[in-house]
């Protein structure tokens, strides 16, 4: 087999450009994962609870606890990992004052309930098909999780979810619980 060096050169130069581009994109992303020193008050909201609870989920009622508020949807692939992973953290840390609450942005409530049948969790699930609450939280990806301190301030944002993310998230939550 004889590789044609001259024309292959074109291809590999092209690859090099792409790799360089990718590397620069990746590098610029990792810059933002730094220390949390700020406090942005979480928007207030009231939403109906559709699973693992009754009545309404209101931001006001959550103040005083460390809260992980997660926006998800049944059509979101990584949510199949994030919801069960959050449940594990919730089960471990709820006695130390952690509240996990999730808001589904599904257009149809049944779609969310079907999803929960397949991936059951124990924390309350609220429903907002209007888009008002995710809009107020400026959600820019599924899932989007907001870590809120005891004073009601958003302190960290977690967009997307991949295997292993729960480790860093758990550390972050524990640090906040110990404040």
């Amino acid at each position: 087999m004889s590789l044609q060096v001259s024309s292959l050169g074109h291809v590999f130069r092209w690859c090099a450009v792409l790799i360089a581009l990718n590397t620069s994109l990746t590098a610029s992303d990792s810059v933002s994962a730094e220390t949390a020193t700020i406090k942005v008050p979480a928007p207030d909201f009231v939403l109906p609870v559709i699973a693992n609870g009754k009545g309404a989920l209101a931001m006001d009622d959550l103040e005083g606890s460390v809260v992980y508020l997660d926006f998800w949807a049944s059509w979101c692939g990584p949510c199949r990992l994030s919801l069960p992973a959050l449940d594990t953290i919730y089960q471990e840390l709820k006695d130390q004052g952690l509240i996990v609450a999730a808001i589904t942005v599904d257009a149809v409530e049944e779609d969310a309930l079907d999803f929960l049948q397949r991936y059951p969790v124990s924390y309350p699930i609220a429903f907002d098909s209007s888009g008002d609450v995710p809009s107020a939280f400026a959600v820019n990806g599924m899932p989007s999780g907001y870590l809120i301190d005891r004073s009601g301030n958003v302190r960290a944002l977690h967009v997307g979810f991949k295997r292993g993310d729960e480790v860093a998230l758990r550390d972050e939550i524990i640090a906040m619980l110990e404040e």
Binding site: D29, I38, K39, L157
Partner: peptide, 20 residues
Amino acid sequence: AAIASLPTYQKAFADAPPAF
């Protein structure tokens, strides 16, 4: 600068690795 230092672990995956 306060808001800007809000940590984001990662942005949204348009192409997340396969979940399964």
